[in-house]
Nucleic acid binder design. Structure first.
Length: 225
DNA sequence: ACCCAGGGTCATA
DNA sequence: TATGACCATGGG
């Protein structure tokens, strides 16, 4: 009997170590204030971070990296400022919604469990599974793993099975993840390492070869050219 | 000219 | 519950 591509059990510790040893780790998440991290998490949806930075600079120079003035601003004003980040009409609505949430709920976040906080964020228009987890991890410092597209591609390349959606991956793998007992700081670094590896993986010929290099401890060498 | 990027919503079946 | 259209800019 043949079973094809029988997925192995992900060893998150091993993957983390491979990445930590071989991938450049800058600061995650970039941002001067907690609210800037919130806004960045929305603006970066399906968008290159370089474009997001331009939008954040525009907001900052306009004094709008602050929830109160932001919700008081005209949609057209915000749209013009964040235009480089793309989808500026929908993101304007999203930014206003999450700003209102921040004003109302930020102060009581410490009274909520990780799941309660996540669900509260998910109720906001424009905040889906990944953006919610970004905020839960980088703004509220709760220990969650970000199952973004890079992470799922990495897991697939490592032979750990295919995970077409964020929620499926989270449901399937969170039990194993918790068993590995990562600290919040480790998970914060983990996501950054995965994204940095993902950016390099394109130049290296995709996640498949990128993971091969990682497993053989040749990733750093290969990515330095 | 084409492809993708640190996703999410909404309508439809 | 699951798929597909839609949202938009900028760099490779």
């Amino acid at each position: 009997m043949v079973w094809m591509d029988s997925p192995r059990t992900p060893d998150f510790r091993q993957i983390f170590t491979l990445l930590a040893d071989q991938v450049e780790s800058d600061e995650w998440w970039p941002g001067e204030t907690r609210f800037e991290i919130v806004i960045g998490a929305v603006l970066v949806q399906n968008t290159n971070w370089a474009n997001v930075e331009k939008a954040i600079v525009n907001l900052s120079e306009a004094g709008l990296l602050d929830p109160q003035p932001l919700i008081a601003s005209e949609a057209e004003t915000i749209g013009t400022l964040i235009r480089p980040a793309g989808y500026y009409n929908v993101k304007t609505r999203y930014i206003k919604a999450i700003s209102q949430w921040f004003i109302t709920h930020d102060h009581e976040a410490t009274t909520l469990s990780d799941d309660e906080l996540r669900n509260s964020l998910l109720a906001v228009r424009g905040i889906g599974a990944e953006t919610a987890d970004d905020i839960v991890l980088y703004v509220y410092h709760r220990p969650v793993f970000i199952y973004d597209s890079y992470a799922r591609r990495l897991l697939e390349a490592a032979g750990f099975g295919s995970y077409p959606s964020y929620d499926k991956a989270k449901r399937a793998l969170d039990p194993l993840l918790h068993a590995a007992s990562f600290t919040t700081d480790e998970l914060a670094a983990f996501h950054g390492l995965i994204v940095n590896a993902g950016k390099l993986s394109r130049r290296l010929g995709g996640w498949s070869t990128a993971y091969q290099l990682l497993a053989e401890h040749r990733f750093a060498e290969a990515s330095n050219r």
